[in-house]
Design a protein around this nucleic acid. Structure first.
Length: 108
DNA sequence: GCAATGACGCTCT
DNA sequence: CAGAGCGCCATTG
């Protein structure tokens, strides 16, 4: 484990409900890390395996998959299996599938 | 400790 | 609408 900072990111990603997606920037913000979108991607990459985190529900701000090669195809596959639809451009319509968490969500 | 890298985001062209 | 450039911050060599 690199640092405890990632725990916060994992905690947020774990809250993303099935059939919905969150953007890297959104996760970063929810994890109290403004402008930390890259760190979210970095954290998920380090996720090699172990904790049951729905990393595949995290996409970029354009609603597309930032991964390359087989990894991207695999993520898309999983999302489609959850009901997430992709358009002809391989992008998700965030207006319909973006996760809308309720602020705070914890106490209060 | 500095330089380079990266599963990003926003703005301009 | 698509592509390129710059900024952001943590991890790694």
């Amino acid at each position: 484990m690199p640092t405890g900072s990632y725990s916060r990111i994992y905690d947020v990603v774990r809250r993303v409900p099935r059939g919905r997606v969150a953007t890297y920037g959104q996760v970063a913000r929810l994890a109290c890390i403004p402008n930390g979108a890259r760190q979210v991607g970095y954290a998920l990459h380090a996720l090699h395996d172990g904790p049951p985190i729905p990393w595949h529900r995290v996409v970029n701000a354009l609603g597309g998959i930032s991964l390359r090669g087989e990894s991207a195809a695999r993520q898309r596959r999983r999302l489609e299996r959850e009901g997430v639809r992709f358009d002809a451009g391989g992008r998700i319509r965030l207006a319909d599938f973006a996760w809308r968490p309720r602020r705070g969500r914890g106490p209060r």
